[in-house]
Design a protein around this nucleic acid. Structure first.
Lengths: 193, 193
DNA sequence: ACTTTAGGTAAATTATATTATATCGATTAT
DNA sequence: ATAATCGATATAATATAATTTACCTAAAGT
């Protein structure tokens, strides 16, 4: 069976992963030794991976990403593979149930794929924007009050100055469980083409 | 070294990958045999992975993703990740003159072009980070207190919930003109190479 | 009944990932 | 100069991923 082509592509991936790992390690000023103790992966294996001469197992990949507290996709350069489309921008300021007032701060359509909003969530109310298009990442910070956020089947309770990051393409809802207004700061990024 | 916890997490990842693979395969109505010939990975290995009883190598992961023509991150559920940043959990960094405390919220410098920080500016003090590299854009929001910001020769006075956007490559300084702490929310973007 | 297909299991083998240890050259610091 | 650190390299040993082959059960079709 001819798998030369595939093998070469897999080789390329290994090389790219190695370059990425080396770049991240050097950006943090770490030696192979230090990285080894952080990740519980031997220095030799790390060196081999960085030189693209390794075929690391999933557990090793996970250990490295975990030790560096980065997503695995950061190692695999998967960010660049994501296909994009731009959000269709309706200029809504009020949500359907009027529970939430959205206030655009900077519209980055002219500068890049970034939008910043401020949102005021009324007491004891819920705002469900639904899922956005693929490639949207939301960063939400609680500026005042409390926020209960539901992302698919999981709930997260955030207090003042807490932040959360998640993929906006997942079904989610913002809930103000308190009797006073909640103020949120939204940063939304859209993957580039 | 105690790595039981980490190992369990790695196990969880393997299980999740297995579930994802099985779901994708069944959604496409493929048998293990068919998937094996599509991916050039043995049926037994595929079965082991689906049952979470395997620790596949990067090349096998790549072969599967390639055979199914899906991004690797789709297999790894990387886009399902949710990160929460709590108010006081981050490692704070002090500026040279100790006027400003910087608290990273989400650091994407290694795999993207976005960083989010929270900053605490001491009463009646100034923080001058100098000019950053070219291509940096800063979005600053006042979460609490007041901020006087100097950008080259111009001054801007911001109050609670005000925001400002400017090019970080220009010389700038953050000034807290009040007697109480100022809390800022930073979003910094970097143009990609 | 019988046959086929799918998926799980087992044993044996091959291939290779991972580690430990040591050495080497280059750089950096004292 | 000398020592120390870093990354590359080599070797050997161990652990385990991956394949092959075979057999098993359950379900679905004929």
């Amino acid at each position: 069976m001819d798998n030369t082509h595939k093998w070469n592509d897999a080789e390329k991936l290994a090389k790219k992963v190695g370059e990425t790992l080396r770049r991240i390690r050097q950006e943090r000023g770490l030696s192979l030794q230090e990285l080894a103790s952080m990740t519980d992966v031997s220095k030799l294996t790390l060196g081999n991976i960085e030189r693209g001469e390794a075929n690391p197992s999933l557990s090793v990949i996970w250990k490295i990403a975990n030790g560096l507290t980065i997503p695995i996709s950061a190692l695999l350069n998967e960010n660049q593979e994501v296909l994009v489309s731009r959000k269709n921008k309706g200029n809504k300021v009020l949500s359907a149930n009027e529970a939430c007032t959205l206030e655009p701060i900077f519209d980055a359509s002219n500068y890049g794929s970034l939008e910043i909003h401020r949102a005021f969530l009324k007491p004891n109310s819920e705002y469900s924007p639904g899922a956005h298009q693929a490639g949207v990442i939301e960063y939400v910070t609680v500026m005042k009050g409390e926020l209960k956020i539901k992302i698919q089947d999981d709930y997260y309770h955030l207090y003042e100055y807490d932040s959360i990051k998640f993929n906006g393409s997942r079904e989610h809802a913002y809930i103000n469980p308190t009797g006073s207004e909640t103020v949120l700061h939204f940063v939304m990024t859209y993957s580039k083409s």
